[in-house]
Structures are given as structure tokens and as C-alpha cells.
């Protein structure tokens, strides 16, 4: 949705927002200066990274490992700091991002 283009006639009455959780379309990953990089060989799949993510961006994959969704991850580093096994390291975004500038 091109939000800057919304005209007054397109607003719902009273500016009610009718699409639940529509903010999920908003990319907060651009704020990031560091990204979490995982070494899953050390991971015990405890889910501590998942529960402590302020941005709800960590999801469990089919194998039971947890992965940060970089569309949302702001790179706070809480997951790396809290991981009891040192699975996660925060890496400067420039280094990593050079090759894979996602989406």
C-alpha cells in the first residue's frame, strides 16, 4: 500500500483500521546494523531466543531450529546475549549484506 498516496476518500470512517496486524507488511529489518548469525551445531533448541525477541521475528523451522526473519529483525542482539550455548553471534551488517541484499 502506498501510504503516502492515500486520499481522504479512501480512509475508513473515523480512521478505523480494519485489517488486523497489517503492520506485518512494514519492514523493520532496514533499521538493522548487526544481524544474528547462528551456528546450529551448538543449538539445543531450547527456544530462549524465540521467547525473548522483542520483535517476534524468530521462528522455528521444520527441524526445530530457530531462525530470525530478517524482514523484521532490528538487530538488537538480545537473542545472542541470552542464548545459553553461544549459538548466535551478531555480525556487522555491511560485511554480510554486501552479497545478499535481501528483497
Amino acid at each position: 500500500m502506498g501510504k503516502e498516496k492515500i486520499g481522504w476518500k479512501e480512509l475508513e470512517i473515523g480512521c478505523v483500521v480494519t485489517e488486523p496486524g497489517s503492520a506485518a507488511s512494514y519492514k523493520t529489518g532496514e533499521w538493522r546494523s548487526e544481524r544474528p548469525v547462528r551456528d546450529n551445531t551448538k543449538c539445543i533448541k531450547c527456544g530462549i531466543c524465540y521467547i525473548y525477541c522483542p520483535d517476534a521475528c524468530i521462528r522455528e523451522d521444520e527441524e526445530g531450529y530457530f531462525e530470525a526473519d530478517l524482514y523484521y529483525c532490528k538487530g538488537c542482539g538480545v537473542c545472542a546475549h541470552e542464548c545459553p550455548r553461544g549459538v548466535i553471534t551478531m555480525v556487522e551488517e555491511e560485511e554480510e549484506a554486501k552479497e545478499e541484499k535481501e528483497k
Binding site: 481522504w8 480512509l11 478505523v16 480494519t18
Partner: peptide, 14 residues
């Protein structure tokens, strides 16, 4: 629904 959302300058006048 969400009611009473925050309206920055790009939408307040509308």
C-alpha cells in the same frame, strides 16, 4: 479493528 490510531503529518490532514 484498531480504533484511534496514530496519525502522522502524511495522513492527519486527510
Amino acid at each position: 479493528v484498531s480504533m484511534g490510531c496514530y496519525g502522522p503529518p502524511f495522513i492527519y490532514p486527510e
